[in-house]
């Protein structure tokens, strides 16, 4: 599903340059359930953003679903994001003046699906998240866990192949963290390749593989024994 070879990324600021990713090679199979761990500043978010085509890389090759994602125009990147990738962020990134239903339906708007149809689909997804009664509430009226579930519904509504989550539980307490992880695990079971950046051990333990990053390089890839046994 995802094949990275020799990915390098350097950030240039006025005075200095910062070599953030130093030759990342990585292979992720369809349906994989992966977490990425590492110290702050080690380049986890950068890697995830490159995977999501939110950012570009300097050298190397990135194949997503056997398509080379290189030197994409903004237009192509937008299309691939919309079709293949779902995002979940630490700070939810819901649009604050849109209610839950409108937020969830938004990716379908950019797919030119009619308003009526996309609202029906969005309602189904909210229902799956157990948020049907919150469809017409604004994000400001919801708890962190609810907001993150709305964000997850929005991430998967367009049927992506890959779900990218950058510290999805970073702003949640341990109980809601558990709920959200259960949700993500179920989604993975339904076949979505899932990659989660996290600092939390409990989150990493829920995934099948843990990638440890240090100073822009992959240190180890560890398979979770718990899952191997099961």
């Amino acid at each position: 599903m995802i094949k990275l070879s020799g990915i390098n990324k350097t950030y240039y600021t006025e005075a200095t340059s910062l070599h953030v990713l130093k030759g990342i090679d990585l292979h992720i199979e369809p349906g994989d359930y992966v977490s990425i761990m590492g110290a702050s500043g080690s380049g986890k978010s950068t890697l995830l953003n490159i995977l999501g085509m939110l950012d570009n890389y300097d050298t190397g090759d990135y194949y997503l679903n056997n398509i080379l994602m290189k030197d994409l125009s903004e237009r192509q990147a937008a299309k691939y994001r919309n079709e293949m990738i779902g995002f979940v962020f630490q700070s939810f990134n819901l649009i604050n003046f849109k209610n839950a239903l409108e937020n969830v339906a938004l990716p379908l708007y950019y797919r030119k699906i009619s308003r009526k149809k996309r609202n029906i689909i969005a309602m189904e997804y909210l229902d799956k998240m157990g948020l049907k009664d919150w469809a017409y509430h604004l994000p400001s009226e919801m708890s962190g866990g609810q907001k993150q579930r709305v964000a997850i519904a929005r991430a998967i509504i367009s049927g992506p192949k890959v779900l990218l989550a950058d510290e999805p539980t970073g702003a949640l307490d341990s109980k809601t963290t558990e709920e959200v992880m259960q949700l993500l695990t179920e989604l993975n079971k339904s076949g979505i390749t899932t990659i989660i950046v996290t600092h939390e051990k409990s989150v990493a333990e829920a995934t099948k593989k843990v990638i440890h990053i240090k100073d822009g390089m992959i240190e180890t890839i560890e398979s979770n024994s718990k899952h191997l046994n099961s």
């Binding site: 939110l54 903004e74 937008a78 994001r81 819901l94 649009i95 938004l106 929005r154």
Partner: peptide, 16 residues
């Protein structure tokens, strides 16, 4: 900026 960024992440092209 954030709203527009979110829209872009969700598949809005610059033209849109």
């Amino acid at each position: 900026t954030r709203e527009i960024g979110i829209r872009r992440a969700l598949g809005a092209t610059p033209r849109v």
